[in-house]
Each structure stands twice: as C-alpha cells, then as structure tokens.
C-alpha cells in the first residue's frame, strides 16, 4: 500500500489576469522507502503541488479545485487546519529551495530546531536540544554543539541547507519533500547535498519526494520520476524508463538539452518556443506548439495516456505503434 496517494490534484490560482491552472489533474503515489523525482521547468506546477499537499499555499489566490491526497487513510486536502499542523513538520517534513531565506534570521538555529520537537512531541527543551545537536551531526555539521547556538547568517548556504535537512530528520518524518533543495547552491555544494540526501535515504529508508528542474539531480537518487509540463503530468516511469526510453516528446527534448561529456556539441539543443502563458485556454496538448512531432489532432480534445507498461506511461497521441511507424 502506498504511503502517499495523490489522485487528480487540481490547484488553480485566481488572479486578476485570469485563472492559472497551476496543477491540473496530478496523480501519483509514493511507496515507503522510495525516492520520487518530480521534474519540470519553472511554472510547471511541481512546487505548487507539493505546497498544496501541506496546505502551504496562500488561499486566496490559490484554490484547490479537486483531488485527494491519501496519507494513512486521511485526505490531506480536507483535513482541518489543526490536524494538518500535526502532520506538517512531523510526519511530512519539507526542505525548501533557498536556504538563505528559508531560515529565520532573527532566531538562533537551536530555537528553530528545538521548537519542532517541543511542538510535536512535547519533549523538554534540554532533551530537544541534545536531539537537535545529534541531527546536525548526522548531516555533517562539525562542532554541532557550538554551531547550534549561532544564527543563520553565520552559516554558508550549504551549511544552511544541511540545517534544513537536519530539521526534517528531527521527528523521523515518514515523508520528506525536498523542493529544489540544490537550486540556490553552488555546483560543488549541490553535489554534496544530493550525496547527503542519498546516503540519509539509504541509511534511514526515507521516503523522499525530490522536486527539481535539474535532471542531473534526480538521475542518481530517484527510483521513479514524474515529468510535469504546464501543470500536467506528461510522463511517469522508473529512472531507467525516463533516461533511456523517454517517450513523451517533451521528455525527449529535455534529455536532448542536457550537456553531455562524451560528445563535443557546439550548440546545446533547446526546445523551440516558450511555455504557454499560464492563463491561456487549454485545448488539447499544451506542448503541441513546441512539439517537433505535432499532428493536427494535438490541438483539440483530450490527450490520452499511453501505457508502455505498469510503471511507464505518457500523455500523448503518439502511440508506440505510431512512433515505430515513423521510425521505419
């Protein structure tokens, strides 16, 4: 039984410019101990979906228009605020994109860490402090008992992200959602943070949702990958499926756009065009205007799911047979 099962999640933003369908019918499930990568470009709705699960989107302008998110037989989307607070930071922890702004600059690290334990487990401050120090040591912060009384501005970006990860480890959360955990960091630090997440995931059997626009980040750590485009899921599969057998033209384009060390390309491939305006009317496949294999039927009606097997599916009119035909 999956740990988290999301069905047909719809999150719309109601703005003066019109309705933005940020997440439009997202379904996925997360098995215990699994690492799920969610990839997509900025504005594809990947972060909005994760925030919606924890009730972190400001409403208004955001509004959840439907769907279910089952976690231990409870639907996260309709839990009362009080009940949801007991899950946030406790059963489901979140790591945010920018560690420079995600920690409170006015409070000591110790305060920001221990308050999680005193809130959710009601332990004494002293007890909480020793556990917080232990968590900092787990994420590789040297001299943790001295570091913990410092303020965030005394830490580097990578250190701060380690603190955020330590916070997520504190309560032994069942699910950790990492929303672009490496985007704001230097490349060398990125690798360290991903390595840290990978080793923690293996050591503690964490269930991890890794949201990123960087395919390189998900490649080494994820079991399954969801590819999102313009608020919709367009392809899902195991990490091998996505990297070796990409089936949706968008995923293919993304992979072609990756720089490769074994080839001396002068120019990096770029998917032509730009994502549609978020407020645009949705008719047919939203990738159609940029798709190299577009057909007239792509611009109208509903796009069907093509199932290659139980785990690998994509949203496209191009069935596997059609593709083979074109290849021949």
């Amino acid at each position: 039984m999956p740990l988290l099962q999301v069905e047909d999640l719809r999150v719309f933003f109601h703005t003066y410019a019109g309705v933005i369908r940020a997440v439009d019918g997202l379904s996925f499930s997360l098995e215990p101990g699994q690492c799920l990568g969610v990839v997509g470009e900025s504005g594809s709705g990947k972060s909005a979906a994760m925030m919606a699960l924890l009730g972190l989107l400001p409403q208004p302008p955001a509004k959840i228009h439907g769907g279910r998110a089952l976690f231990h037989h409870q639907d996260l989307l309709c839990l009362p605020k009080r009940e949801l607070r007991k899950i946030r930071g406790n059963k489901i922890a979140m790591i945010f994109q920018d560690p420079m702004t995600s920690l409170n600059p006015y409070l000591r690290i110790s305060t920001q860490m221990t308050e999680i334990l005193t809130t959710h487990e009601g332990v004494s401050t002293k007890n909480a402090l020793s556990r917080a120090i232990a968590a900092l040591e787990q994420v590789g912060i040297a001299d943790a008992s001295r570091a913990i009384v410092q303020y965030p501005h005394q830490f580097s970006g990578g250190m701060r992200q380690r603190v955020m990860i330590a916070m997520a480890l504190l309560t032994k959360a069942e699910i950790i959602i990492a929303d672009e955990p490496t985007t704001a960091l230097d490349v060398t630090i990125q690798a360290q943070i991903i390595e840290l997440l990978r080793s923690l995931q293996q050591r503690y059997g964490l269930s991890l949702i890794l949201v990123t626009h960087d395919l390189g980040v998900v490649a080494g750590i994820s079991d399954h990958i969801l590819v999102m485009y313009n608020g919709r899921l367009v392809e899902r599969g195991t990490v091998e499926d996505i990297f070796y057998r990409p089936s949706h033209p968008y995923t293919e384009g993304l992979l072609q756009a990756l720089p490769r060390v074994d080839q001396q390309h002068q120019h990096l491939y770029a998917i032509p065009g730009a994502p549609p305006l978020p407020t645009a009317q949705r008719q047919g496949c939203s990738f159609a205007p940029r798709c190299p294999q577009v057909m007239p039927m792509c611009y109208e009606g509903e796009v069907p799911w093509v199932a290659i097997n139980q785990q690998h599916q994509y949203l496209c009119h191009l069935t596997t047979e059609l593709k083979e035909g074109a290849a021949r």
């Binding site: 924890l54 972190l56 607070r85 899950i87 946030r88 930071g89 979140m94 308050e115 809130t119």
Partner: peptide, 9 residues
C-alpha cells in the same frame, strides 16, 4: 513559510 511547514501554530 518554513515555520508553517514545521507545523507551528
């Protein structure tokens, strides 16, 4: 937002 995600009141 981080504070909210921690489940604080």
């Amino acid at each position: 937002r981080t504070a909210k995600a921690k489940g604080l009141s």
